[in-house]
Design a protein around this nucleic acid. Structure first.
Length: 927
DNA sequence: CGGCTCACG
DNA sequence: GACGTACGTGAGCCGA
């Protein structure tokens, strides 16, 4: 079925103009709105991939100021200020841009874009087409009356149907015109009825049906301002009703068929981008058709970035008055975006209590709203501050307002705190949002850290007030709620201010440097998903861990005694230094190797080497030390530590995921790290039995099988490996056959080692060490591997060449990882970076894929009617869920499908993604 | 706080 | 001629 996309060009120009900083093109002409507009069209091109993407598309513009509405009412849009001086010359450039994309540009004298959009929609729907209006204009929402039509807000990445109208205005699209008429619109100068805003308008229309009926009922209403105004301004109401009505029968300037999409020819677009010097977009064009999102470009320069004034803490406001808070909120609404930060009592978002919120609107224009200051002693005097409930009731609508962008730095933290802060209000669900920590990561992974202090120093040459300067440190450290309001305001408002400044720099860079796709499609949506997972946590059966702890304790004590008896004296077994001395000096074991700190190495390889020698005098002790080490590790890191991590309020463990921790794009997990729970040995695996489901629920674990090898087969284009995955063959067996000509336990094990080694860029010496062969033999295996799978050596060479030239590697989804040390003068550093660069596209693509699956999982489960299936954990290639036992069979195929198709439609892989699913009462049992 | 060791993918 | 040798993480312990 044809699907027509109608782009509201005019409204988009204004939004692009106001959202983006003032940019200029290479000729020094103002071109920010042009750039924003082109980026939007580009983003829209992503829709082409989708199943219900456009088959037809046109951009609609306003032609002139004079329309039939001016004839009705000469004041219509009369008070609109003229377009800003630097925007005017961009109008013709934008029409050029549209033509450069070979898209029809439609405008007609006497009609507004809205009327043309309404008329085209009606005509298309009449022919049974689907229609999507690309706009966020409230007047156009009147058109959402039929099932075949919806709206798309590309800037917020949001699709809207009739529910969105009900949510925003309290009435359906069929009554929206009535409500808009009563409300009026000060920007367009639609008069409406004085004193009636959205709430009253909706109430009246719901009660009476339409404007005429409201007016007719007015004389009978209870005496008051509302009644008087309705009677006095009845004519204005009737006029407003006509002004907001969209004309649906404008003669169509071009036939619908002329809007058919037939691909975007290269040449005109290239010429246009080249004319303006939009380098990154040009580079992307150069790469169109390949699977890599962005070609390497020279250091991109964002032209004409405004210099912000230096930070000045003295101007920050402490808001302790309701009316003042209202003003800040109104200003934020008016502007459409606001940077914010929360101050709390601690670093663990799932336990911390809210102490205050800071807002920043413009550089140096920021405030702090304290709501929880004062000592914990209930008799202690508290500073004058807004009542917590009052302040939160005012902040909640702003933080949830779909038309105001909220900007945070590590917003995941704030999102969790705010979701928990006011259960009586149903929590606060922050959105829509941007997160500067994630933006920085998507732009500059590998170049530097992404903490606010470091970013402020790097990008703003500003050194932030240190948290410790405000709260002190060590024994004398106080909680933020105990900090006096003056100091708290300086610190908190500065954080919001800096966040805003960073955002202004990062936002245009994302588009310029080709990072928008990975940010918008992968990492930004994940912030909310991860926040929800962390808040959910996972139940731990403390009794299981406590039993294991006791068990381990006894074994450890027994081993300790035996080890000391063998040595003949007591020493600290856990000290590598003492252990090394005992083994290699006192007991005289040969072959000890000292590291650079002068201590003998006693790691597991070394000890196993000793144990392998049947005649070694240290064999008995070393075996016991290995056991002791394993048990000590399990006890201190897992069975003891995990019990201490149980949140008393929830009875569950809430890890914290870092979205920016791993350079490749993987997540990392801390406090506790739930991505390294033992599994490889039976003793360790028992710890997973303590991760359990609530009664009536079960744990479901779904993992990608061999995802990195599959991706290597795709990315390096290795037919032999691809076929093996296609036919479901065991991949290590296949490699063993290719390399050794026969498959047995030994050759399969070696093949497995080599398969992984290759992905990590191994050397002959490294492989020799792992396989216990000579470097020459190892080299022979590597050579044979490359002969069997020639794509691999090509991949390694190409990846290194590109990485050295561009300074970064790229995943299939366009995620960059920078490798500045590829240029290092030290061979050691260079070699290390080369190995990392070989691995990064594969590990990173795998990370992108599971992240996409995670972002889509919630909606897919909701759509399947499975709201009680909760995603709890991610372990790089595995997702762990908790769900009602009765939902298992329904959830299984949904989870499998979402994971297996997570690369689509952006990327079509030439290998299938295999998913393995297990279910059980505990994580251990689900494997 | 660095080094060592070891848990995971 | 010596060095060091597989990628990505986080945590606990020791000892300076």
């Amino acid at each position: 079925m044809p699907h027509l996309y109608l782009v509201d060009g005019s409204s988009f120009i204004f939004r692009a103009y106001h959202v983006l900083p003032k940019l200029t093109n290479k000729h020094g002409e103002p071109a920010g709105a042009v750039y924003g507009y082109v980026s939007m069209l580009w983003k829209l091109a992503d829709e082409l991939d989708k199943a219900d993407g456009p088959t037809h598309l046109a951009v609609i513009f306003d032609k002139s100021e004079q329309t039939f509405r001016n004839e009705m009412y000469d004041q219509y849009k009369a008070h609109r200020p003229p377009a800003p001086e630097d925007l005017v010359p961009q109008f013709p450039m934008i029409r050029d841009a549209t033509r450069a994309f070979s898209l029809p540009c439609i405008e007609e004298a006497g009609w507004e874009a809205d009327d043309l959009i309404a008329s085209y929609s009606k005509a298309a729907l009449a022919q049974g087409w689907q229609v999507t209006i690309v706009s966020s204009d409230k007047d156009l929402m009147q058109l959402l009356t039929e099932p075949g039509i919806d709206m798309l807000d590309t800037m917020k990445d949001r699709r809207m149907g009739p529910e969105a109208v009900v949510e925003k205005f309290g009435v359906g699209p069929d009554k929206l015109g009535e409500v808009l008429a009563l409300m009026g619109d000060s920007v367009d100068n639609v008069p409406g009825v004085p004193g009636i805003g959205p709430k009253t308008a909706a109430k009246l229309i719901l009660e009476h049906g339409d404007v005429e009926a409201v007016l007719a009922a007015a004389p009978a209403m209870k005496p008051g301002k509302l009644r008087d105004n309705l009677i006095e301004h009845a004519d204005k109401a009737r006029l407003s009703r006509k002004l907001v009505e969209l004309a649906c029968d404008v003669p169509l300037p071009d036939p619908l068929e002329s809007m058919e999409l037939n691909g975007i020819p290269d040449a005109p677009l290239r010429a246009f981008l080249d004319h303006h010097g939009f380098k990154t977009l040009l580079a992307r064009l150069g790469n169109a058709g390949t699977t890599v999102a962005d070609a390497p470009v020279e250091t991109p320069d964002v032209p004409g970035l405004e210099e912000d004034p230096p930070c000045n803490h003295d101007g920050y406001a402490t808001v302790t008055d309701a009316a003042e808070l209202d003003r800040w909120i109104a200003d934020a609404r008016h502007q459409g975006w606001v940077a914010f930060d929360t101050e709390t009592t601690g670093v663990d978002a799932t336990r911390a209590e809210l102490v205050g919120v800071s807002l920043a609107l413009k550089p140096n224009i920021a405030c702090y709203v304290p709501i929880g200051h004062g000592g914990t002693d209930m008799f202690a005097e508290k500073p004058v501050q807004l009542d917590r409930d009052v302040a939160l009731a005012k902040l909640k609508p702003l933080l949830e307002d779909p038309s105001v962008l909220k900007i945070g730095h590590n917003l995941k933290y704030d999102a969790i705190v705010l979701a928990r802060c006011c259960p009586e209000l149903g929590g606060i669900t922050v959105g829509p949002y941007d997160d500067t920590i994630v933006m920085s990561f998507d732009l500059d992974a590998g170049l530097h850290g992404h903490g606010m202090d470091e970013l402020a120093a790097t990008h703003l040459s500003h050194s932030c007030i240190a948290y410790k300067d405000v709260t002190g440190s060590g024994k004398k450290q106080i909680g933020f709620h105990e900090v006096d309001l003056k100091a708290a305001t300086r610190y908190a408002a500065e954080d919001a201010d800096v966040t805003l400044r960073l955002w202004k720099r990062f936002k245009p860079r994302l588009a310029y440097e080709g990072a928008t796709r990975v940010y918008e499609m992968v990492d930004r949506p994940l912030v909310r998903v991860i926040a929800d997972m962390e808040r959910e946590g996972i139940k731990i059966d403390a009794a299981v861990l406590s039993r294991l702890s006791d068990d381990f304790s006894k074994q450890i004590a027994a081993l300790e005694e035996e080890i000391h008896a063998i040595a003949g004296f007591k020493f600290t077994i856990g000290s590598p230094k003492q252990l090394g001395d005992v083994l290699f000096d006192k007991m005289g074991i040969k072959g000890g190797r000292k590291g650079k700190s002068g201590v003998y190495s006693t790691d597991v390889n070394e000890l196993e080497r000793i144990a392998a020698d049947k005649d070694s005098p240290g064999r008995e002790m070393v075996l016991k030390v290995l056991d002791w080490r394993q048990l000590s590790k399990l006890k201190s890191t897992y069975t003891d530590a995990l019990q201490a991590q149980i949140n008393p309020a929830t009875g569950r463990v809430h890890t914290s995921y870092s979205l920016t921790g791993a350079q490749t794009g993987r997540l990392s997990s801390t406090d506790p790290n739930l991505q390294n729970i033992p599994i490889r040995t039976e003793t360790g695996r028992q710890i997973r039995d303590a991760f359990v489901a609530e009664p009536g629920n079960v744990i479901l674990s779904a993992d990608y099988s061999q995802i990195e090898l599959r991706l290597a087969a795709h990315i390096a284009d290795v037919p032999a490996l691809r076929e093996a995955f296609e036919s479901g063959e065991d991949i290590h067996n296949r490699t063993a056959m290719e390399l050794f000509g026969e498959v047995n336990r030994d050759t399969r094990g070696r093949a497995k080692t080599i398969n992984f080694a290759i992905l990590y860029g191994i050397s002959r010496w490294g492989l020799a060490g792992r396989l216990d062969v000579t470097p020459d033999e190892a080299q022979g295996m590597i050579d044979r591997y490359f002969q069997s799978f020639p794509g691999i050596s090509r991949y390694i060479a190409d990846t290194l060449t590109e990485a050295k030239q561009a300074g970064y590697t790229t995943t299939l989804f366009g995620r960059k990882t920078h490798f500045p040390r590829l240029q290092s003068k030290t061979q050691h550093e260079r070699a290390g970076s080369e190995r990392a660069a070989i691995n990064a596209p594969i590990q990173g693509t795998s990370a992108d894929i599971i992240k996409r699956a995670m972002a889509r999982m919630g909606p897919a489960l909701a759509e399947a009617g499975l709201p009680n299936v909760k995603m709890l954990l991610q372990v790089h290639d595995e997702l762990v869920f908790e769900l009602p036992e009765g939902d298992v069979e329904a959830a299984r195929p949904v989870i499998e499908r979402v994971m297996a198709t997570a690369a689509e439609p952006a990327i079509t892989l030439t290998v299938p993604l295999g998913i393995e699913i297990g279910v059980g009462p505990s994580w251990g049992a689900a494997h």
